[in-house]
Nucleic acid binder design. Structure first.
Length: 561
RNA sequence: GCAUUUUUAGCUCAGUUGGACAGAGCAACAGUUUUCUAAACUGAUGGUCAUAGGUUCGAAUCCUAUAAAAUGUACCA
């Protein structure tokens, strides 16, 4: 519809140029946009405002001249000039009624598009190391990343979801030492407890299972605990597998799955880290100083050069990071998105700098980053400090158990990633009935309920007749609902392209509002067959869009509540 | 100090390529059930869009400065 109106305006512009009212060389970058208020019609165009200077006339005069030469269209019922010179387009009832036909025809594919054209895209998210259970921050990453993956899939990208984790190195060693200490009966603060050891209760649980000789399956491996306390390597393998197993269970409970799990250790074992280092040296962007090797990241926008190889010979974390991203590029992901917590923002410049230094023709802004701001958790009116080491935190599992998967997902995805999120557990739990997600789900359930009522009342629903009778949908409630429905495709498009899933959450609430208002304002199951058929079709279209949208959110669309 | 992000109604937040009088939910207030699920609806109340400048037909939105908050700023990952 937008494009249609744009064409009409473009035609009118040409006509005015021919008439000589406008200079032939002007090409204003005008927009056709949804109006905020119904008083201004459905779409508005600002072209007259932009032309005022070039034409040396008042905007309203230009608008009037444009309207005079605007080609007629059956989709447009009325055109008004308003305010400083906006041209407002009022769509005909038929134009909106026809959207119901489109929705019912497209079904589950309504709103989807092929903007991505099947190109490969990778989105990496969560990527928590297996040193403890997933917490709320990971939950936000999981909810946002998963929703983004769904959105991008819906606009035609070939999406691969990846989870990257470190199964070796200092932190994992610390984990193993912590478990070993627990297995020996040493508690935090006692002698023998590792410096900066992980103190959480789960460490004791892993130690107990290890001593008991239990087995665990994770990432395709079956690990049996040896129970030998002195075998740190065995403890490490068992601990990593145990925690990986827990994380997978958490994510499953949250409805999030991945296509690929990528291990940092494989970058070393496959020689990718070493190869990357050699390439960087060959590129001439490195130098040695103080016994360490540096990369001149300042040449690529960093504020100081970064150490690649420490004086003890080990590599800093950013080298495997670069090597990892090289594999993404080599695996053919022309587009890659990293969803991470904002506490990692400093890595962006370094990773991109490292990739640029390799001279591999990787685009400057690759990969994309979506950083979500921190989540602070409130409980009992106080902030719960998240600290793995201290062992005090709110796990994702806790939230799912207390608040529910649907509500947690909605809550974590409903706001802009840029803004910090306060998750008040007491509020979320005590007011879970007021959570917007139930409001949306209820709208869906209400349509299902109407459809059940049909049988009980012995009423029929002829869908084809409903389509033929769409012209009967003329009430204000119906109009508003159809307007809302027709927004879905453009909203989906914008949410996916801007990488902003909160737009979807917001939209679904608006749609539910329009439906609840309609439901209360008009009887659906009326005696008149034609009117009832038409209204039931409108309800079915609403049900379809709610279902499609909730699907992308990863939230279920219940038939009954 | 520097970097990133944030600052909109009592609270939690929308406001998307700069548009017409700033919008929701919650809380508080007044109503709506013999009739399709009241997990709903209707109405009224509530804002100097952090502050000060600038850009232009037009700014919550862009630019500059200031203030406040979060996070980062390792030869840790």
């Amino acid at each position: 519809m937008k494009d249609h109106i744009r064409d009409l305006v473009a035609h009118a512009l040409d006509a005015l140029k021919t008439q000589g009212m406008l200079p032939a060389d002007v090409a204003p970058a005008f927009v056709i946009e949804r109006t905020r208020s119904r008083e201004h019609g459905d779409y508005a165009c600002n072209v007259a405002l932009l032309l005022a200077k070039a034409a040396a006339r008042k905007p309203r005069e230009i608008a009037e001249a444009l309207v005079q030469v605007l080609p007629p269209s059956t989709d447009i019922a009325k055109i008004e000039i308003a305010g400083p010179g906006f041209i407002n387009f009022f769509l005909s009832a038929a134009a909106y009624q026809n959207e119901v036909r489109t929705i019912l025809g497209a079904g589950a594919t309504y709103g989807r598009s092929n903007i991505g054209a099947g190109r490969k895209l990778q989105i990496e998210f969560v990527s928590a190391n297996p040193t403890g259970p997933l917490h709320v921050g990971h939950g936000r990453g999981a909810a946002v990343g998963d929703c983004l993956a769904r959105l991008l899939g819906a606009i035609g990208w070939d999406v691969s979801r990846e989870y990257y984790y470190n199964d070796a190195g200092a932190q994992i060693n610390n984990l193993a030492l912590s478990v070993q200490a627990r297995a020996r009966g040493i508690e935090p603060e006692q002698t023998g407890w590792p410096e900066d050891g992980y103190r959480g209760h789960y460490i004791s649980e892993v130690a107990r299972a290890f001593l008991a000789g239990e087995s665990v399956d994770a990432d395709g491996q079956h690990i049996v605990a040896s129970g030998v306390v002195d075998d740190l390597d065995a403890i490490r393998r068992f601990a990593v597998a145990s925690l990986r197993r827990e994380q997978v269970l958490d994510l499953q409970a949250f409805g999030v799955e991945f296509d690929v799990y990528y291990l940092e250790s494989s970058l070393y074992s496959e020689g990718r880290v070493e190869k990357t280092v050699q390439q960087l040296i060959a590129s001439g962007h490195t130098y040695e100083a103080d016994g360490a090797m540096y990369l001149r990241t300042t040449e690529f926008g960093d504020d100081k050069d970064r150490v690649m190889r420490k004086s003890d010979g080990g590599y800093t974390y950013f080298v495997p990071d670069v090597a990892y991203h090289v594999t993404k590029w080599q695996r053919g992901f022309g587009r890659a998105i990293n969803e991470q917590g904002a506490d990692h923002h400093s890595t962006i410049t370094r990773v991109r700098a490292g990739l640029q230094a390799l001279n591999m023709q990787i685009p400057k802004g690759w990969p994309d980053y979506v950083l979500h701001q921190m989540v602070t958790v409130m409980r009992g009116g106080e902030e719960v400090k998240l600290s793995k080491r201290a062992g005090s935190y709110v796990t994702l599992r806790d939230l799912i158990d207390e608040v529910g998967c649907d509500a947690t997902r909605y809550f974590l995805v409903a706001r802009k990633v840029d803004s910090q999120l306060i998750f008040d557990i007491d509020l979320a739990r005590s007011q879970s009935n007021d959570n917007p997600v139930y409001y949306i789900q209820y709208a869906h359930a209400r349509v299902c309920s109407l459809q059940r009522q049909l049988g009980e009342r012995g009423l029929g629903w002829n869908r084809d007749n409903g389509l033929a009778q769409l012209a009967l949908l003329t009430s204000n409630f119906e109009q508003l609902l159809m307007v809302e429905l027709s927004r879905y495709p453009e909203m989906l498009d914008a949410a996916a392209q801007n990488l902003e899933p909160h737009m979807l959450a917001q939209y679904l609430r608006d749609l539910a509002t329009a439906f609840h208002a309609y439901y209360n304002g008009e009887a659906i199951l009326v005696a008149d067959d034609n009117l009832r058929d038409a209204r039931l079709n409108l309800c079915a279209a609403t049900q379809q869009v709610l279902h499609n949208g909730l699907d992308l959110l990863g939230v279920c669309a219940p038939e009954k509540m």
